[in-house]
């Protein structure tokens, strides 16, 4: 059985006068020790999806579908069960680690508190030893235990957040833009550390980011989202090398290349559609350079290209002949 199975999940924000369809019909499977990257621009619903899986959304968000953790639906868990599962089975690292902690309490004390939520009877000294061991894993000096968040740099705080997420050796780690705010050097240090940790601690990871290069270098599979819907998913070596969906291609073309000839940089013209209006056809059709009549009238389903490679496009790229 897969570690996590997300089945047909839709998330709608209920506003006083409209509904915003933030995530629509997303399917995702995460096996043990696997790493999946979810890429998309702002407004693509990638963070909403992750927060939905963690049940961290505000009360006006309506969730349908199932998210099965070892076959148990997260959306149906009681609050008590949820508390048991969070941190122990699944944990999260947020983008702004600086804001994830209280500024007026020492870091060690805050981590100790979290530990005690799950194991209230453990003596403090034992927890402290454990936390300092965790610090060592993420390359932090022991003095961090007695520091306040403002005394640390952005990179160090991000390491604290990662150490915190590993405190109970979870099976699944969700990283929501966890390295986005960091410098390239610090980012690649932390990404390397995370990949080592995964091997040693058997952790599966969902990596949410807008930076395709982060996914390319650290994940096995990738899901490309646009306007709340899945555009394409599959192994990174397939999707990012020979994209089938025009959006994936457009996204990749938007990054200037580091090597090779300097080709003209092309963005994707237009803006994200209004998510409170359900599109009749493909959500990307308005901005798609290849859109035909069918694209505006009929919504494309996710089609299998090969193995676990799927795309939601009527006319996948490179298959014009048989379209």
């Amino acid at each position: 059985m897969s570690l996590l199975e997300v089945k047909d999940v839709s998330i709608t924000y209920q506003m006083p006068n409209k509904s915003v369809y933030a995530v629509q019909n997303v399917n995702l499977t995460l096996n043990e020790q696997e790493s999946v990257g979810i890429v998309g621009e702002s407004g693509s619903g990638k963070s909403t999806l992750a927060m939905g899986i963690l049940r961290l959304l505000p009360s006006n968000a309506k969730i349908t579908g199932e998210a099965l953790l070892h076959g148990e639906d997260i959306f149906k868990m009681s609050d008590k069960r949820l508390r048991e599962v969070r941190w122990v089975n699944m944990s999260v690292v947020f983008q702004k680690a600086m804001n994830a902690m209280s500024p007026v309490h020492k870091i060690g004390l805050q981590m100790l508190d979290i530990y005690k939520v799950h194991y209230p009877d453990t003596p403090d000294a034992e927890i402290k030893t454990k936390i300092i061991e965790l610090f060592k894993i993420v390359n932090l000096p022991p003095r961090v235990y007695d520091s306040y968040p403002h005394e640390l740099s952005g990179g160090m705080m991000q390491r604290v957040a990662i150490a915190l997420s590993l405190i109970f050796q979870p099976e699944m780690l969700i990283m929501d833009e966890a390295t986005t705010a960091l410098d390239v050097v610090t980012q690649s240090q932390i990404l390397d550390e995370i990949m080592d940790l995964e091997k040693n601690m058997n952790i599966a990871r969902i990596m949410i980011t807008h930076d395709v290069s982060v996914v390319a270098s650290t994940c096995k599979r990738v899901v490309v989202m646009y306007a709340g819907q899945m555009m394409e998913d599959g192994d990174v070596t397939d999707v990012l090398v020979k994209p089938k969906h025009p959006y994936t291609k457009g996204l990749l073309n938007s990054f200037p290349s580091f090597s090779g000839e300097k080709t003209e940089l092309r963005g994707i013209p237009g803006n994200l559609p209004d998510l409170s209006i359900l599109a009749k056809g493909c959500v990307f059709a308005d901005r798609c350079p290849y859109a035909k009549e069918k694209c505006f009238n009929e919504k494309p389903e996710l089609k299998t290209i090969a193995g676990n490679w799927h795309t939601a496009c009527h006319y996948p790229l490179g298959e014009e002949d048989n379209a």
Partner: peptide, 24 residues
């Protein structure tokens, strides 16, 4: 050299030798 080697590539098949620089 270190700065450039730490720059992640878009190509998942490209393996760049990373020069580590400790600390910040």
């Amino acid at each position: 050299r270190a700065l450039i080697s730490n720059n992640a590539s878009l190509d998942p098949n490209e393996k760049r030798e990373r020069i580590p620089i400790p600390g910040e």
